[in-house]
């Protein structure tokens, strides 16, 4: 399969994210750039959704539990047609629908719930999956988690609930970029091994490179085609700040916006990477 379309989309979304953050003057580039491919693949390929009808019955839903990566979600929602791309540049400004962390009541189409207080998204997704099962709805629920977020106890409560209630319509995705605000996850509070932990809690696990579309597509397809009762987790190894060399794997870029010069350098680098696409 030819992934050129998606590779081009990744570059567009990365540039949107950086321009939005530069314009806002604050925000989280590192964790936004690490999950670009994971989110692009959902909105442009795997989610059953309709940008013209955001409340489509039975739709697949994405919950961004790591809410600080919302620039990526906003950029994808605009690109896929939920709202005008002009609105992206209101991010973090007063009276904007694009809050610093997603706000459900701000009426931005495509936002399924408010997130930002870490550790809550998987429980919310599990509740949605329970409701879909109860009503025999066909949709799937996807929840994007950070790896540092796995330090939150509520995540493990939800992991137990989802396997107990056999929520095979629930797919967690761990954006495993190995960094959190204070440093490397393994040094702050180690959460490894992730795969074995999920398996011991009764989940199917799928390990992929979170920047390679071939592996991402295979991962989502494996979840969708899964026939057993277990919920699934896709553990996606990623690089924080992916696509901008001076941001990559650098914890300083967790929560800092680029200035004009840094933005220029970043855009140039992304454009250069697109030569040949």
């Amino acid at each position: 399969m030819d992934f050129d379309k998606y590779l081009k989309l990744s570059n567009t979304i990365r540039k949107d994210i950086l321009v939005m953050l530069k314009n806002a003057g604050s925000g989280h580039p590192g964790g936004s750039l690490s999950c670009v491919e994971l989110i692009v693949a959902l909105y442009f390929k795997f989610l059953k959704h309709d940008p013209k009808n955001p409340f489509l019955e039975d739709r697949d839903r994405l919950i961004l539990s790591k809410g600080h990566a919302c620039p990526t979600q906003y950029a994808c929602l605009a690109e896929v047609g939920y709202f005008s791309k002009d609105e992206l540049f209101t991010l973090r400004k007063i009276c904007s629908r694009l809050q610093g962390h997603p706000g459900f009541k701000c009426s931005l189409p495509g936002i399924e719930v408010s997130t930002g207080s870490l550790g809550q998204g998987l429980s919310i997704g599990s509740g949605m999956a329970l409701g879909y099962k109860l009503d025999k709805k066909s949709g799937n629920i996807y929840v994007l988690l950070g790896d540092g977020e796995l330090q939150s106890g509520q995540i493990w409560e939800a992991i137990l609930t989802a396997s107990h209630y056999k929520l095979n319509n629930l797919c967690a995705i761990v954006d495993y970029n190995s960094l959190q605000i204070d440093g490397r996850v393994e040094n702050i509070k180690n959460i490894m091994p992730i795969k074995e932990k999920f398996e011991s809690f009764g989940w199917n696990t799928i390990t992929i490179d979170g920047h390679k579309y071939k592996e991402i597509f295979d991962g989502y397809e494996k979840f969708i085609k899964n026939k057993d009762d277990n919920p699934s987790v896709i553990i996606a190894k990623t690089i924080k700040g992916k696509g901008v060399s001076f941001m990559e794997d650098n914890v300083d870029w967790h929560g800092k916006a680029p200035n004009a010069r840094e933005l220029e350098m970043a855009i140039l680098e992304i454009d250069n990477s697109a030569i040949g696409l």
Binding site: Q120, S123, S126, M128, G131, Q154, E157, A158, T161
Partner: peptide, 28 residues
């Protein structure tokens, strides 16, 4: 029994499970 969910000793999870159920149309 099918509209009752025992979430166990996990109140934080329970509140958010209820949120998810309400987001798909339930009164939780």
């Amino acid at each position: 029994p099918n509209r009752f969910f025992n979430i166990g000793i996990s109140e934080q999870d329970m509140i958010c499970e209820a949120a998810g159920l309400s987001l798909v149309g339930k009164i939780s």
